[in-house]
Each structure stands twice: as structure tokens, then as C-alpha cells.
Amino acid sequence: MAFEHAPAKLNLALHVRGRRADGYHDLETLFAFTAFGDSLTAEPARDLSLTIEGDFAGPAGQGDDNLVLRAARLLQRETGIRTGAALHLTKRIPVAAGLGGGSADAAAALRLLAREWGVERSRADLTAMAAELGADVPACVASQTCLGTGRGEVLTPVDAGVAGMPVLIMNPRVPVPTGPVFAGWDGVDRGPLDPELHLGELRNDLEAPAVALVPAIATMIEWLAAREHCVVARMSGSGGSVFALFRSMAAASAASRAVPAEWWSAYTSMRQPGGDGGPQ
């Protein structure tokens, strides 16, 4: 049985610069990844199939539209491979949560099946292929800290200085659809994202419209910001998950133990360069 980790994605910052004629938005975002995530396994089979277990298996959906199966079919189409695979996903990342769960799973499927099927494709090839599956999928292929521009698919590796830092992620247990959040953006360009700046000087321009839909997001950010030794507290992506980076594991652990029961949470660390993560 072959295994692949699908690290959860965080947007350490997300600056919306404008609306595009194609309906998308021009973004500048700082992608980073955690040691927490989903797990994907594959066994040889004649056809493609997918089973899902875990806390968020139901919302993830096991139909043909699941991004794992779409990624597998895309790889088959692009390479001419006719081999199948029995895929099994352990779903730990909340769905519609701003953590890139579906994107991470699709990227894991591309990496895993390219390896198992003996597909001679470079990481750059897989990244280009991933853009067909969604704006966040290319970043998830490498799962390394990078600056994303365009729709988020134009990637430049950066060092945000967060590798190995303890992080606490929280979610109000309310799915937050991406479309309505972007539709609620006020259209004001508040300036570019400079990855050289301290994270506290950056922002997420989608926080305000997400909070308008789910006020608990603001409550969680305020709660995290008040924890001892919190470096930065912010919403990830289009919500509704929020995160806080801490100066010490002890401070993050203390905050994790104090999370109110009504909120989902995961206490983990930021992924190290070249690391394969592993669920925590």
C-alpha cells in the first residue's frame, strides 16, 4: 500500500488586488503548510475508486466530482495511463474551511499516482497540471512556503520564517463557501503583499466579508490574539478557519487546552522545508 500525506494549507496573508474580467480576482497570498493534514493511500486496481473515512468524510463526498478522483483522471488523460487504483482518504481537514483540504488531497493524488504508475513527470509538470483542478492545487503540489500571485497559481518560493513554529488552528464548525465571501469583498485595493514585512503588518482582505457571514470568525481571532506569546492571529483563505502562530510549544499547547468545546481545533507545527509532515 502506497501512502501520501496531504498537508493543510494556511494563507499567512491574503491581499485582494482587484476583480478580473473572467470572474476571478487578482490575489497576492503567502502560502504555508502544516504538519497536520489528510492521508491518502493507494492499492493497485483495474479501475479507479475512492473511499473516505475520518471526521469530515461526509462533507468531503465520495462521488465522481471529488478532487482526488478528478486528479487521478486528469493524470490518466495527460499521460495515457490506463492503470487504476483503489484510493482511500482519511479526512481530518474540515471542508470549506480555508485550509485547502480538497486542494491538498488532489495534489497528494497527483504525487502518489505519478510515483505508483511510474509516470516520468517533473514537479513543474505536475504543478502545471494541477492548475486545471483549482487555484490552490499548484501550491499544494510542493506544499512549501511560497508567494502566490494571479489567482494564486503563479508561485515564487519564499522564506517566511515560520518553519517549525507551533500553530493552533480553529474553526467554528460552520462551512464558509468561497463564492459569497469573494462577492462580499468591498473592491478596495489596500496595497501589495511584501513577504519581507513582519506577518503582523500583513492582512487578509477576506476577513471582513467572511466575518459578515460568520461572526464567530472574529470572536475566534480575538480569542487567539489574547493568548500568551501569540505572534499573529488571522483568518486563513476565505474562512472560516483561523490560526495563531506562537513563540513556544508550551504557549501553543496551553492555548490548545483552553479552546472552547464548540470550536474545532488542531494543535500542530508549521511544515519544515522538504518534510513530509505527517498528521498530528
Rank of each mutant, 00 (worst) to 15 (best):
G179H: 11
A233C: 05
G187S: 15
P209A: 12
L197E: 14
V176D: 00
R173F: 05
V176I: 13
V231S: 06
R190S: 03
P215E: 03
H198N: 06
R227N: 09
R227I: 09
D186A: 05
W185D: 10
V214N: 11
L202G: 02
G200P: 06
L202H: 12
E228F: 00
G179R: 13
D205W: 06
T219C: 05
I217L: 12
G191T: 06
P215G: 02
V174G: 15
E207G: 03
H229D: 15
R173H: 10
A208D: 10
A210I: 00
A226G: 04
W185A: 08
P175E: 09
A225K: 07
V211R: 15
C230Q: 03
P177L: 15
E228K: 01
N171A: 14
P209D: 10
R227H: 13
N171G: 13
P209K: 08
R234T: 05
A218C: 11
I217Y: 10
A218R: 11
P192N: 15
A208T: 10
R203T: 01
R234M: 08
F182W: 01
R227A: 10
I221E: 03
G187M: 14
L199G: 12
L197D: 10
A226D: 00
P175N: 08
A226R: 02
D205E: 00
E201D: 15
M220V: 02
L197P: 08
D205F: 00
L193F: 11
P180R: 09
P215T: 08
R234H: 00
G187T: 14
W223S: 00
V232N: 08
A218I: 07
I217F: 10
R203C: 00
T219R: 03
R234I: 03
G187H: 14
G191C: 11
W223K: 07
N171S: 15
V181R: 06
T219G: 01
P192F: 15
P195T: 14
